[in-house]
């Protein structure tokens, strides 16, 4: 083996070694790397109890309730399998609307209602002009997903 081949081997081994180490490291911290839990996971009791976490899902159309004269708002989040009711007193992001992907940060209370301190909007990777979105809405009747 020439010195050059040896160096090549070392470079390849370093890459493989670091790759394997990182894979194990990331697998060990898998749970901490999840930015949010789905409503199904919350219902199944996978979300931490008594500690703050994030829940993400789509706002169920027709469940957004506002209190008159207050900024309090409540809405249901779903992943099309389970639902979580979220209460929030604060300013909602511009993209907040029914059917929108939302990530709420807060705690579950005794009644199983998620009391949020912060609400973020998640948008998907699709971009389109309003006319296209409108025609999609008419053909699918459910509107663009998320």
């Amino acid at each position: 083996m020439t010195a050059r081949q040896q160096r090549m081997l070392i470079v390849i081994l370093v890459l493989i070694g670091v790759g394997i180490a990182t894979t194990f490291g990331l697998r060990a911290f898998q749970e901490n790397l999840l930015y949010y839990y789905s409503p199904s996971a919350v219902q199944a009791g996978e979300a931490p109890v008594g500690r703050k976490f994030r829940v993400g899902g789509l706002v169920v159309p027709g469940t957004v309730k506002r209190t008159d004269g207050e900024i309090d708002v409540s809405f249901d989040l779903t992943d099309n399998a389970a639902m979580v009711t979220v209460e929030f007193a604060g300013i909602l992001p511009d993209l907040f609307r029914e059917g929108q992907g939302i990530i709420a940060h807060g705690k579950l209370n005794q009644q199983g209602v998620f009391v949020a301190e912060e609400v973020l909007a998640k948008h998907d990777e699709n971009y389109m002009p309003p006319e296209v979105a409108e025609s999609l809405k008419q053909t699918h009747a459910g509107g663009p997903s998320k």
Partner: peptide
């Protein structure tokens, strides 16, 4: 793609 994230998936390489 590996984790739930706030950032959405790739638009161009979808």
């Amino acid at each position: 793609t590996w984790w739930n994230s706030l950032h959405q998936g790739s638009t161009l390489l979808k």
